[in-house]
Every structure is written in C-alpha cells, then in structure tokens.
Simulated scan of single mutants.
Amino acid sequence: MAVHFTGVVLLTQQLAPLLADGGSILNVSTGLTRFATNPAYSVYSSMKGAIEVWTHYLARELGPRRIRVNAIAPGATATDFAAGAVRDNPQYRAMIEPTVALGRIGEPDDIGAAVAAILDPRMAWVTGQRIEASGGQRL
C-alpha cells in the first residue's frame, strides 16, 4: 500500500504545484485490474485499481491547468515482475501467449512506446483514462 498507492499519491501531491500548466502525469496500473488470474495478485491489483480511480479524480482536479492525467495498464510483459516469471519461464509464457490477441508476450519496449504515445502532445485531448497496453490480453 505504501509503495503502490500512498507513495504515488503523496509524491504527486507534492510535485503537482511544480508541474507546468499543460503538462502530463502518467500513473502506472496493471492489466490485472481487469483480468483476475491468480489470487496472489489480489491486493496488488486492488492497489492499482485505487490508482486508476485516483487518476480520474486527479484529472478532474488538474484539468483547469490543462494538465492531463492518465494511467497505463500493462499486460503480461517480459520484465522482472514476479521474479521474472513471464520473462524467464517458458512454460508460463506458453500458458499466457494463447490469451493474447496479438499472440505474444509484451516486451519492455512495447510499454515504452505506449508511454511515449500517451505522453505525446498529440494526445493533448486525452485525460482521466486507463489505457491498457496488453496486446489484447484476455479480450
């Protein structure tokens, strides 16, 4: 709770006054808020769900300053999350891949590209949104 929710809220509250009008905030959620897979992730997913709700409220609060606030929700990505299970366990990958519409596990560069797109000034009319970057996982 301290890392995934409270810390994010407190840090943003401290830095928001310093953020230039017309800027952007991108919170990080998870695809696990939409697809419940493993009960071991229930508390983590709940905290990320709280970040999504808070994103809506923060977008409303900072809207008069033209500050966009969105959340990105990555799906299964080959990182060190969960001790690198998606990245390093071929059996686990083989179990997840058929659930992804685009047929593969995400790579860190996929999420980086999505972050860059969301923060791009051409997305200036998008705020208060949860944007999933999952390759269509569990559609």
Rank of each mutant, 00 (worst) to 15 (best):
T127W: 01
I118A: 15
A82V: 12
N89I: 02
R65Y: 01
S45R: 06
G23F: 07
K48A: 01
N89S: 08
T77K: 03
E52F: 12
T37C: 12
M95Q: 13
S134C: 14
G103F: 02
G63Y: 01
I105W: 04
Y41T: 15
G49W: 02
L139K: 07
D109N: 14
L10W: 09
P74H: 04
G103P: 04
S46M: 11
N70S: 09
T30H: 00
Q137S: 07
R104F: 04
E107F: 08
V115C: 06
A82W: 07
L15G: 12
A124L: 10
R130A: 09
D110V: 10
S29E: 00
D110N: 12
Q13M: 03
Y57A: 11
V86N: 03
M123I: 07
T79V: 04
A85Y: 11
A71K: 09
L11N: 09
G128C: 01
E132S: 14
R104T: 06
S29T: 05
T30L: 02
L26N: 11
A16V: 08
F35G: 12
A59M: 02
D120G: 10
G135N: 07
A73S: 11
Q13N: 09
Q91M: 13
N38W: 09
A94R: 02
A101D: 06
A76E: 15
G103A: 02
P98S: 05
A78Y: 11
L10N: 11
N38G: 05
G49T: 02
D21P: 06
V126M: 14
E52V: 12
T30E: 01
S42T: 14
S24C: 14
Q13A: 06
L139G: 12
V3P: 05
Q137H: 13
G135C: 05
P39I: 03
A124C: 11
G106P: 01
G7N: 07
G31L: 03
G128D: 01
V43Q: 10
Q13V: 05
Q14E: 13
V86C: 07
A124I: 08
L19F: 01
D88R: 14
A114G: 03
T127D: 03
A114P: 00
R138W: 11
S134V: 10
S42D: 15
G136T: 06
